[in-house]
């Protein structure tokens, strides 16, 4: 908004997703559109019994995933409406972290940050080492058995062609909003105020910016505790553990070397 240096202005805008779950009707059009566009294979035909969610989580072959948070009220026998039945839907996706665990961890440089700020796996570079899989604090990216790692591309191909990502395009209720990240963040704040004013007290914006993840480019507005949606309270990018770990490694290496030299010098007193 304020005057930016010219160089900043020519950079492509940083885009994001604002998924407003209060508008989501659980139609799964996003999930299907993503699969169609990206030609993702099926994820298996298994009925889960978990409300209407049969794909269960994001994975190597589900890059958009709609969660069905069905809360059981305390049920009496018979009787009238259970006023506290609630059924929330929320469309999950790769968070495109500001500081992305997967990207940091990737040894091949396959995972890159695109000019739109998204986190993108170059499929021809990935070697399937699986290290990103254990490095994502949100459990998003996954390796297809005997194959490489896959996750949401943020529709890099579509964005490059000036198109809206397939999932956002398909969403009938604008629950998935796509646009410039900072604009979306302001919209989310405004929406939160609006919802709270309308009596929706339990609405929260999930965008962990005060942890090492430093904010996510795909953030969410949900009702109730984000943990019900399997969104961790304080996700940390694994690289915060590098320092203590390497410190320990260095100390241990030094110890081995010292001990070995010491042992050979003194223990084997020839």
């Amino acid at each position: 908004m304020s005057a930016e240096p010219a160089s900043a202005r020519v950079r492509p805008r940083i885009t994001g997703f604002f998924t407003d779950s209060t508008l989501c009707i659980g139609c799964k059009a996003c999930e299907v559109a993503c699969k169609e566009w990206n030609e993702i294979p099926s994820d298996g035909f298994v009925w889960s019994g978990l409300s209407y969610d049969n794909t269960v989580s994001l994975g190597h072959s589900t890059w958009r995933h709609v969660k069905f948070v069905e809360r059981l009220p305390v049920h009496g026998a018979g009787g009238f409406s259970s006023p506290d039945v609630s059924w929330e839907f929320s469309s999950d996706v790769c968070k495109h972290c500001e500081v992305a665990g997967c990207l940091e961890a990737c040894p091949t440089g396959s995972i890159v940050r695109t000019e739109f700020g998204g986190v993108y796996i170059q499929p021809d570079v990935c070697n399937g080492c699986g290290y990103c899989v254990v490095s994502c604090p949100f459990g998003v990216v996954d390796r297809r058995p005997h194959d490489r790692a896959f996750k949401c591309t943020f529709c890099y191909d579509r964005q490059k062609a000036g198109m809206v990502p397939a999932c956002a395009k398909a969403c009938p209720t604008e629950s998935i909003r796509f646009g410039e990240l900072e604009v979306l963040r302001r919209e989310a704040a405004a929406r939160l105020v609006e919802l709270r004013a309308g009596g929706v007290e339990d609405a929260v914006v999930y965008d962990p910016r005060d942890t090492s993840v430093g904010g996510i480019h795909a953030f969410f507005l949900v009702r109730g505790d984000p943990k019900m949606y399997n969104l961790p309270e304080r996700p940390e990018v694994p690289t915060v553990r590098l320092r203590p770990a390497w410190r320990s490694a260095g100390a241990a290496a030094a110890a081995i070397l010292t001990a070995a030299i010491g042992a050979f010098l003194f223990a084997d007193g020839k």
Binding site: E70, F138, D142
Partner: peptide
């Protein structure tokens, strides 16, 4: 599928039906 009965409602304590957040190592 869906056990225990009634299924664990998603909650702050148990997360989303008790399903994992993270992916298991693929090694």
């Amino acid at each position: 599928a869906g056990a225990p009965f009634p299924m664990p409602s998603p909650s702050a304590e148990t997360g989303y039906y008790g399903l994992p957040v993270l992916k298991e190592p693929t090694w």
